[in-house]
Every structure is written in C-alpha cells, then in structure tokens.
Computed example of a mutant assay.
Amino acid sequence: MSRNEALRAVARHVGTEATGGRGLGGETTLVTLADDRRVVAKRGAGARATQAEAAGLRWLAEHGDVPVPAVHGADDEWIVLDYVAPGAPGIAAAESFGRGLAALHLRGAPAFGSPPPGGPVDAWMGLAPMRNEEHADWPTFYARHRVEPYVRTCVDAGLLDRGQAAVFDEVCARLPELAGPPEPPARLHGDAWSGNVHWAADGRVWLIDPAAYGGHRETDLAMLRLFGTPLLDHVLGAYADAARDAGAPLADGWTGRVDLHQLFPLLMHAAVFGGGYAGQALAAARAALRA
C-alpha cells in the first residue's frame, strides 16, 4: 500500500493537510495532520466494505452506549476514522463496557438481518462477504445468511464433505427449537472478537471494525468468547446485570447456546482461511445439537 495514497485520502476527507504516516499493518495507516491530530486511514475490500463500516460505526455511535471511532469520511476505497490510543485492560473498563453493550443491544434494529441505515445489503465481515437481508425471525435469517452460504463454500472448497454438511443442515432445520425463546432484533456490532474490543488509553473499551446488523444479542456475546476477550467474566457479569435491570434479562440457558452462535464466525473463518476452522465449526454444530 502506498503511504502517499493514504495521506491523500485523509486530506480529501478531513480537509486538513496530512504531514506524515506509518503503517499499522495490512491496509491501515496512522496519519498525522498539520494540526497534530492523528487519524486512521483504512483501505477497504471495495465500496460495499467501506460503506458498510462507516454506516455501522455511525449506527453504533447513535446513543453513545459504547465508544466507537468517529468517521471523517468514506469513499469507494477508503474510510478515515479517529485514532484511539491503546491502553491496558482493567476491571472498571470491562464492567462499563458490559453495561454499555447491553444498552447498545437493546437499542434494537428494524428486523433480523437489517443493515445499518445507509449501509449496503451486501456487506463484509473482515475479508468475507456477508449478506444483510431482513427476515421476521432469527432462525430463518441465521440459517439462510449466516450458516448455509458458508457451508456451501466449505463443501465446494473440499473443507467439508457431504456427510459433514448434513450436520449443519440438521442444525438449520432445528434452529427454531435450538435458538431458545424468541427475542426482538438487537443492534449488533457483528464482529466482536477480542481484536475489535479495543482497550484504550482513556480507560474505556472502544468497539472498532464492526460488521453491524440486526441480529440476536447472544451472537455478540458468543463472539466475545471465541478468541479470548480479556476480563470476560467481568464484561458478561456487568452485561447480565444491566440487561436484567433494563427488564430484558438474558434467556435461561444462553450459555448453552454459545456453540450455536459461534457457527457463523467459525464457518466464515473456514471459508476465508481454511485450516482447522472447518473442524471447529463441525464440532460446534455437533455440540449445538447436543445442548
């Protein structure tokens, strides 16, 4: 990636001269402005990717429940965001994040699968395409747009055979009974793995890099568990307390549905990265059927 391209994108969207920059990894550049502010310029996977991220950040920021970086601008290639300096995990920050995430989820969404306002139906989660199409119930949406497409990709790539794919077919057929009590659609971050839970120097937890949509709140909670979010017991404890205090406690047995909600990210990782993720997804599907 050309550093000069990132500097030009920042100047175009912020309206202030960019004086320097350094790579943060991948397609992301930390840029210093002439007025000493710092912003981040990210090159997306395409117009839908940058539009989806910008719309998602704005939607999540609407009520200030959890801090997210401000969007300075986005185009078909670039998104420019505030830079948030990193810090260390702490219990107070973890508990505040848990309470804020509960409030964010309860802001709701128009439907299961609804994209953020202004966001595209055909969006992205990291490097994977992700379709946000509205449905009246979560089991139908989850099967059609979060499980079945990625199972097909894994079968076509030789990562799953037909017999293994049948396990996912059974999960999808039984989703109405496996999903627990019906809930209204929640406002999800959508990709809440530990790398997108940003412990900041200001003593707060910020959410970055969303793949936001209307979904089931247990999906975000399952994603937090998937790759080892620090101080997770404090996050989840504060979340459960806040949800209960708001009159919307987590449904009984939600911890037994973690495998069900982890199917999507595991299948998505298998479709993009291959390796052992297909086996992990298959194990999670079998565990979901036993729960």
Results as ranks from 00 to 15, higher is better:
A186D: 10
A186N: 12
A186T: 01
R187F: 11
R187L: 13
R187P: 04
L188S: 02
L188K: 02
H189R: 06
H189Y: 04
H189M: 10
G190W: 01
G190K: 03
G190R: 06
G190A: 10
D191H: 07
D191N: 15
D191C: 12
D191K: 03
A192L: 11
A192F: 02
A192P: 07
A192I: 12
W193G: 03
W193Y: 13
S194I: 00
S194N: 15
S194R: 14
S194W: 08
G195S: 07
N196V: 01
N196R: 01
N196D: 08
V197G: 01
H198S: 09
H198T: 01
H198W: 12
W199D: 00
W199E: 03
A200R: 08
A200K: 07
A200D: 08
A201L: 11
A201E: 11
A201T: 10
D202A: 12
D202H: 15
D202C: 14
D202R: 15
D202S: 15
G203H: 13
G203K: 11
R204K: 15
V205A: 00
V205L: 13
W206M: 05
L207G: 00
I208Y: 10
I208Q: 03
I208F: 14
I208E: 15
I208L: 11
D209S: 06
D209F: 10
P210Q: 13
P210R: 02
P210A: 10
P210V: 14
P210M: 11
P210T: 14
A211I: 11
A211Y: 04
A211H: 03
A211D: 04
A211T: 07
A211M: 08
A211Q: 01
A211V: 09
A211C: 13
A212Q: 00
A212G: 08
A212C: 13
A212H: 01
Y213N: 09
Y213A: 13
Y213G: 04
Y213P: 05
Y213W: 14
G214D: 03
G214R: 01
G214E: 02
G215M: 05
G215W: 02
H216E: 12
H216W: 05
H216G: 09
H216K: 02
H216Q: 07
H216Y: 04
R217Q: 06
R217H: 10
R217D: 07
R217Y: 09
R217W: 10
R217K: 08
E218C: 03
T219W: 07
T219I: 08
D220W: 01
D220E: 14
D220G: 07
L221W: 05
A222F: 01
A222V: 12
A222H: 02
A222L: 08
A222W: 01
A222I: 10
M223S: 02
M223V: 13
M223E: 06
M223N: 03
L224T: 07
L226M: 14
L226E: 12
L226S: 14
L226Q: 15
F227S: 13
F227M: 09
F227G: 09
G228K: 12
G228V: 06
G228W: 15
